[in-house]
Amino acid sequence: MTTKNKVDHGLLLIVVGLAAWAVPGGGHFIIKERKRAIIIFVTVTLTFLAGLYVGSIAVIDRVGAKPWYAAQIMASPAVGLIGNIVEVSVDEAGNRKYVSYGRGHDVGQIYTSIAGMLNLLCIISAVYMTWCGRGEMIGAEEDDT
């Protein structure tokens, strides 16, 4: 492999990793693993949205629940935006506008965090497939059919 190719391959790994983080399944989509990409996108997104529905958007708490937030942010950078909305939304008394409590909070936090961890697995998988060149081979086969 020439130096230029090595640089290109390194850049591709970074692009695939970032795409996989930005949109669940995005990394696999870039390397033409489209079936995989759709399955990952639907599953991770539904799991994350189910968590938000059950526990409300207040389960994204980057101040009071940092370890959970670290897992949740792996689902997408958009989680940071939700965390920001939750943090800055306060009423006149300075209390948070969006709150989460009870068993719904626990279930929501677990769902969103697991969705983030699953996406981390997918990021690693997409980068590894790119590194091995597996995506190119299998992706090409998928294109032919």
Partner: peptide, 16 residues
């Protein structure tokens, strides 16, 4: 509530 989560984990794990 754990069962839908287990299904998600199974699907993503097998997809990768």
């Amino acid at each position: 509530w754990m069962f839908p989560l287990l299904l998600s984990i199974s699907i993503v794990y097998k997809a990768t």
